[in-house]
Design a binder for these strands. Structure first.
Length: 151
DNA sequence: GCCAACGTTGGC
DNA sequence: GCCAACGTTGGC
């Protein structure tokens, strides 16, 4: 049982979208380091849902991993913005996971609050220049962040 | 919209 | 293998 943090632009896919759908494929990850973390995720793991590139960047809620990594179908779809011409079903390059809605934070935990917490200094999210979209969260960091959400 | 920081590509 | 050029990310 491990903890993670996944980023998404809410204009593309938000915590509200996930709440509405209940379960969803997490697709579109096109970075090798992030993909390798996806591959390490197991069903039952928990993850924070982070909203990026939006008016209120921050952690918007919690989801659980419903299904471990499997080939992301969007890589094979020429009509998808995530299409990768170098991928084929015989040799997929990218994986996705299935996630299940768990909780919504209202309001979100703002990025500034995460940056201000000394216990979170090691989190990739708050490190200068980090653009990683899938990252591990330690048990201690998980607890700290939940506390920031008032839970 | 700006721009700093980053990852990837491709010529050599 | 190097590295410049390019495209992308993401906060502000």
């Amino acid at each position: 049982m491990a903890y993670w943090l996944l980023k998404s632009e809410p204009s593309v896919f938000s915590i509200d979208d996930l709440e509405q759908r209940g379960i969803s494929l997490w697709d579109g990850v096109r970075n090798y380091q992030a993909r390798n973390f996806l591959r390490a995720m197991q069903a039952g793991d928990e993850a924070f849902f982070y909203h990026s590139s939006c008016p209120e960047p921050g952690i918007a809620g919690i989801m659980t991993v419903a299904r471990a990594a499997h080939p992301d179908p969007t890589q094979f779809n020429p009509d998808s913005p995530y299409h990768d011409p170098k991928s084929s079903p015989d040799a997929p390059r990218w994986d996705g996971i299935d996630v299940c809605f768990s909780e919504k934070f209202n309001p979100v935990i703002p990025l500034a609050a995460l940056k201000a917490a000394p216990a979170l200094a090691g989190l990739a999210l708050v490190q200068k220049g980090s653009r990683l979209s899938v990252m591990p969260v330690s048990a201690a960091e998980w607890k700290t962040i939940r506390k920031l959400a008032g839970r």
